[in-house]
Simulated scan of single mutants.
Amino acid sequence: MMLSVNDLRLQRGGKAVLHGIDLQVPPGEVTALLGANGAGKSSTVMAIGGALPLTGGRIEVEGNALHGQRPERVRALGVAVVPEGHRVLGDLSVLDNLRAAATALPAARVADAVEQVLAVFPELRVKLALPARSLSGGQKQMVCIAQALIGKPRYLAIDELSLGLAPTVVKRLVEVVQQVAREGVGVLLIEQFTTVALAVSSRAYVLERGRMAFAGSSQELRSRPEILHSSYLAAA
């Protein structure tokens, strides 16, 4: 069983942006989704998370349909999304950001859930009382990933993990992604640094103008750099 996207078609602003793509995210592995800006990567993630309606195709997780579901139902079915842009509730404290992400849990479990994500990101403990807007970009991304993990998802989609972040922060976040996968979570990773994405993933997909240009092992894609080169040149 896995997270499956089949013949996904999608329009934004009346324009077709995805033209029948297929991908699969197995549990316990990192799957990379690569491509130039405008290739359709973020649209794919938003569709998986229930934030964009489909014009065709199916999205399923372990036999349950995600397409047509609201984001909260998608999360309840075990799929969490970290959108691009380090989006936090800036006026709330870091602790309240984490608590807000745990609203679907029974009240008695919230404190334990917060403790569990703080074990993943101990750096956030000293920031709990601060407004989230005061954090660095890397710390905000940690909060966003912690919010996604707090509901114990079986699948996690992360859009642009390292965008705008320092290499040391990227290394730290990659370690967390690998840890999460080792614990059995299937991770769909969108990452601007293709070398990073291919180093941590088992399978990779390359989107080019809303169509799948490559689907295969990350090892194969590493050995065929002309595929990525061609897709980025096509976008330019």
Rank of each mutant, 00 (worst) to 15 (best):
P153H: 09
K140D: 09
D159F: 13
V88E: 01
D159E: 07
A166I: 05
S93G: 10
V94C: 06
P122S: 06
D159N: 10
E84L: 00
E115P: 09
Q116S: 14
Q116A: 14
T168I: 14
V174D: 04
L135M: 05
R133A: 15
R87E: 11
Q139G: 10
R133N: 13
V94E: 00
L95F: 15
K127D: 04
L163P: 00
G85N: 00
R125A: 14
Q141Y: 13
L173D: 04
V177S: 08
P131A: 07
L135V: 06
S134D: 14
A100D: 07
L135F: 11
A132L: 11
A146G: 12
E160C: 06
L89D: 04
V81T: 12
L89T: 03
Q139N: 08
I150S: 06
L163V: 02
L161E: 05
L135R: 00
T168F: 08
E175W: 15
S162N: 01
V126Q: 14
R154D: 02
A102T: 03
V117M: 09
G90E: 15
Q139F: 14
L156N: 11
A132H: 07
P83I: 01
L163I: 03
R154Q: 11
L118A: 06
V170I: 05
K152W: 09
V94R: 00
S162Q: 00
V114F: 14
P106S: 10
A111E: 12
H86C: 05
D96M: 08
I145W: 08
Q141A: 08
T103C: 12
R99V: 10
E123L: 14
L118P: 03
V120I: 13
L130H: 13
G138V: 05
